[in-house]
Computed example of a mutant assay.
Amino acid sequence: MNKFHVSVLLVTTIFMLIGCDPSATNPNVVFSEHKQDPIEELEMTADVDHSRLSYKETFYVPIYSDIYIDKENRTVLLSATLSVRNTTLKKSLYVNKIDYYDTDGTLIKSYLNAPLELPAMGTLNYIVEKEETKGGSGANFIIEVEGMDETVKPVIEAVMLGNFSNKAFAFSTEGTPVAH
């Protein structure tokens, strides 16, 4: 076998191995500081004593997977970044639920296997790629958080990005507390 064939075989094998690793294309892993899924990185291994936590709130966060752009009913796919921010200087925020729902209110995915601890002044960013079309134009997250007291209130937002023709646009939404 000549060097050319060996080189082609080697390059093909490398691309096949990279293609088998979903984390190689997951933007949440690629863009994280430690090259690890940010949710998995923050998940707790020890149980939290929930009796010590007096603040608990559930938030609804609208996510637009696509938007309509003209009278011909064309749509543009959008990417979204969900951002959960702990605004306290000294206390942790505990996130118990991050669930993603579609336009019809059907649960698409529960992102947490275990609660996660967001340290003081910490931020969790999570990307929903524009190729993810299951959510539709009315997609949303339900996020449940807990903290030591009422001073541990998070800021929860989503930023959507898209482009059409030679124009790009971005807009954001805020998490809204919901009644249980």
Rank of each mutant, 00 (worst) to 15 (best):
S83L: 08
G19S: 05
L53F: 10
G136M: 03
T151N: 07
H50T: 15
F31M: 07
T176H: 13
L42Y: 02
Q36I: 11
K97N: 09
S137E: 02
N2D: 15
G122K: 04
L112Y: 08
A120Q: 09
V30S: 11
I142E: 10
A179E: 13
N113C: 09
R52F: 07
S54I: 11
P22L: 12
T88V: 13
Y111H: 00
D149H: 06
M16A: 07
E129N: 14
G122P: 03
E174C: 06
L107N: 14
I14M: 07
D37V: 02
E150N: 11
T173P: 00
I127T: 12
E146I: 12
T88E: 11
E144T: 12
T13E: 10
A120F: 08
P22V: 13
V128Y: 03
S51W: 08
E72L: 11
D37K: 05
A114K: 10
Y55K: 12
I18R: 02
N73L: 03
S32V: 08
N73H: 03
T173Y: 00
N166F: 13
K90E: 10
V76H: 13
S51G: 09
K97F: 07
E41P: 04
K56A: 14
R85W: 01
V48A: 12
K71W: 15
G105F: 09
S79Y: 02
V8P: 02
Y101K: 00
R52C: 11
L53P: 08
F59D: 05
N163E: 12
K134A: 07
I39T: 03
V11R: 03
I108P: 01
A170H: 04
V159M: 09
D49V: 13
L124Y: 02
L118H: 13
Q36D: 10
G175M: 01
Y100W: 01
D99C: 00
